[in-house]
């Protein structure tokens, strides 16, 4: 009885997800595609819950539903101010078949792979034996911060590299200007009120997700993305002013996560345990310390990515009449 209802629910959800994904790609209109993509992210978060991946669902809800939406909508606004938001027709002629064939080929290959590949060896027994020695009870946190911590360290550095890439796309003369556009709101209006109500709640939830991530779904990434959204809301509602690139607290916050992570690895190597190999007795303490620093860095880095490059106060977006970059 429950099985039939669950199957219907999953089929309905997958159909909605596929429709939202198709609608984000088909049809005309850049704005409509972006809004469909936001709805698509929300629905995919539901799918993650159905697949039993609550940790992933938390990350997808915060990123796909929140940050990506702000990023894409802000970009549509920037393109409109540059006169480039109007949609462009698809390619015509003989070449128009190639994308469809490529898509069909990839889908067919994946479907074939799903049914043809043998069932992978279940990690259950190995995981059950290793998890109690990892210092945490949430298996995903154990994988991210203990068993495969090297991947997570590199990922933290990749985030920083992407942020530097975004900063390099600002104008040379604006390097010391504050990040993003100059926000201004009406005093006592809805936007300002929102900026007073949401950030404290979001801060509470973000810190709780970080702390609870040791034993329940949550963790550094989930908490960090919620905190990044809090920072973005606070800045957009004019509650705080964004710092400049050369602000020391900003630079410390960005580097603290990868720095503490790398430092912990080096210290463990110096003590003889091996690079990023956590001994059982200190595992929990090291994981908590690294996660806290990582959450701060992820929050500040993602907020910086969404805000954009430094922009001078007198407005930067317009082209000069001869089409050259001002």
């Amino acid at each position: 009885m429950t099985g039939a209802a669950a199957l219907m629910l999953d089929l309905l959800l997958v159909v909605l997800v596929a429709f939202a994904g198709w609608a984000a790609l088909a049809g005309r209109g850049v704005f409509r595609a972006v809004v469909f993509f936001i709805a698509y992210g929300l629905l995919v978060a539901l799918g993650w819950v159905r697949l039993g991946a609550v940790n992933v669902a938390l990350a997808e809800a915060a990123i796909g539903a929140g940050l990506t939406g702000v990023l894409l909508l802000a970009t549509v606004g920037r393109l409109e101010r540059a006169g480039a938001a109007r949609d462009v027709p698809l390619m015509r002629g003989a070449a128009a078949w190639v994308p469809a064939l490529a898509g069909l080929a990839v889908t067919g290959a994946l479907v074939w792979a799903w049914f043809a590949l043998p069932l992978p060896e279940s990690p259950g027994p190995q995981l059950a034996e290793a998890l109690p020695r990892s210092g945490v009870e949430n298996p995903v946190t154990a994988v991210l911060l203990n068993f495969r911590s090297w991947d997570t360290l590199l990922e933290a550095i990749v985030l920083l590299a992407a942020l530097l890439g975004v900063w390099m796309l600002g104008r040379d003369g604006d390097w010391t200007a504050p990040l993003g556009l100059r926000q201004h709101v009406r005093e006592g209006g809805v936007m300002a009120g929102f900026g007073r109500v949401l950030p404290p709640l979001g801060l509470l939830v973000g810190v709780w997700l970080l702390w609870a991530g040791a034993d329940a779904p949550g963790g550094a990434f989930q908490g960090g993305t919620v905190l990044a959204a809090v920072i973005v809301v606070a800045l957009m509602a004019g509650v705080a002013a964004p710092p400049g690139v050369d602000a020391l607290p900003l630079r410390v916050a960005l580097v603290l996560g990868p720095g503490v992570f790398l430092g912990a690895g080096l210290v463990l190597a110096a003590l003889g345990a091996g690079f990023l190999t956590l001994p059982e007795a200190q595992a929990k303490a090291v994981i908590v310390a690294v996660e806290t620093a990582l959450t701060l860095s992820i929050a500040v880095t993602l907020a910086g990515l969404v805000l954009g490059p430094p922009t001078a106060p007198n407005g930067a977006a317009a082209r000069t009449p001869d089409g050259a970059r001002p």
Binding site: N55, T68, A142, R148, E155, F221, I298, L302, L305
Partner: peptide
């Protein structure tokens, strides 16, 4: 949990790549 951890990493990196 290993694929789930990789997917979480992937989601965050995909956001940063999209921002760039």
């Amino acid at each position: 949990p290993v694929p789930q951890a990789l997917i979480i990493t992937g989601i965050v990196v995909a956001l940063s790549a999209s921002a760039l």
